[in-house]
């Protein structure tokens, strides 16, 4: 028996609907059709009236969820693709994110963003939006990289009394499998980064699908005798600076990898924190690797050269190790 990353997301939603009568799901094509990626397959059948198709109105979808949340419901909004959350940007950053601060009334909701690139998806179905949302106070931004995290972090997100941006990676939906879900005792709480692979020569700090590219790069370099530590941030906001600093303290070298565009963003944030708080720990200038600073290309050949991969991460690590 095995479970995919996508199935874990569906299982988490099933459990939340079962256990909490305040949970409902709202999004495009999610009811009878089960969602563009089938993350809500059969949920409308199993939970009548609680999995609702929305019009193609991302702004109103978010406003609707916010209104329900401030009345005490626990809405989950499925954006069909993370890219389309740009239409809901205003409601997310100005309404949901400011609500508790302004009024003292919590706004507990989860926005599920099918994020990141897949071959052939092009500029408008491939984006990684986590840095944009992390910029705004009042939001929690999560980027699960594993099947177990997809499950437990989504369940925990639904319990959080604040708006949560849940960035699930489309590339992992079908390809990433686990034998079984971790038990509740094995789960790592939101806000803690995970040392996915221990090493002593350099740290790769990354998140989401790039964790798996970094692990492949670490495998490659292991053949040359290098032990690369891979840190999975899991949560972009809050960001577990302590675990990152501890890793850099062990290795002295830092590469930060993200699939999002390079300007600003998570990779810049991590490097800013490490250089400000752990400059003395560094034996080499910290490096970062992002997607290229162009829109995301459609053709698989171009796309493969646009985002970081195991090969480009390996190359960046070689430079870092050679400093």
């Amino acid at each position: 028996m095995s479970i995919t990353y996508l199935e874990a997301i569906r299982e988490a939603q099933t459990r939340a609907l079962q256990e909490n009568p305040d949970v409902f799901i709202y999004g495009q094509d999610i009811a009878g059709f089960g969602g563009a990626f089938k993350a809500t397959k059969h949920l409308a059948r199993d939970f009548p009236g609680r999995v609702l198709d929305s019009p193609i109105s991302e702004d109103a979808m978010m406003g609707f969820a916010i209104g329900a949340a401030i009345e005490g419901m626990r809405p989950i909004v499925e954006m069909q693709f993370a890219d389309f959350s740009s239409i809901a940007f205003n409601q997310i950053i100005n309404q949901a994110a400011t609500h508790y601060w302004r009024t003292g009334i919590p706004c507990p909701l989860v926005v599920r963003l099918p994020s990141g690139g897949t071959a052939g998806s092009g500029p408008f179905h491939s984006q990684s939006m986590e840095s944009l949302y992390a910029h705004y106070p009042g939001l929690i931004v999560l980027t699960p990289a594993t099947v177990g995290d997809a499950y437990w972090m989504l369940l925990e997100a639904i319990e959080i009394n604040d708006p949560v941006i849940f960035c699930e990676h489309k590339f992992l939906y079908y390809h990433l499998k686990a034998g079984a879900l971790p038990t509740v005792e094995e789960r790592l709480p939101i806000g803690k980064a995970r040392i996915t692979r221990h090493g002593k020569h350099a740290s790769v700090v990354t998140y989401s699908a790039m964790v798996h590219e970094a692990l492949r790069a670490a495998d490659e370099l292991a053949r040359l005798g290098y032990e690369i530590e891979v840190v999975d941030l899991r949560s972009i906001k809050p960001l577990d600076t302590d675990t990152v600093l501890a890793s850099v303290a062990r290795t002295g070298r830092l590469l930060v990898v993200g699939e999002a565009f390079p300007y600003g963003g998570v990779t810049a944030e991590v490097i800013a924190r490490v250089t400000a708080e752990g400059f003395h720990l560094l034996d080499a200038p910290p490096k970062r690797l992002n997607a290229r600073d162009t829109p995301i290309p459609y053709h698989p050949n171009l796309w493969a050269a646009h985002r970081p991969t195991a090969a480009t991460i390996t190359e960046a690590l070689r430079e870092l190790l050679g400093f």
């Binding site: 109103a60 406003g63 609707f64 209104g67 329900a68 401030i70 009345e71 419901m73 309404q95």
Partner: peptide, 16 residues
């Protein structure tokens, strides 16, 4: 215009 959908969601919560 941003408050209209919020009111819609509040109403839906009451219905739930």
């Amino acid at each position: 215009g941003a408050m209209i959908s919020v009111v819609c969601g509040m109403l839906k919560a009451r219905q739930f």
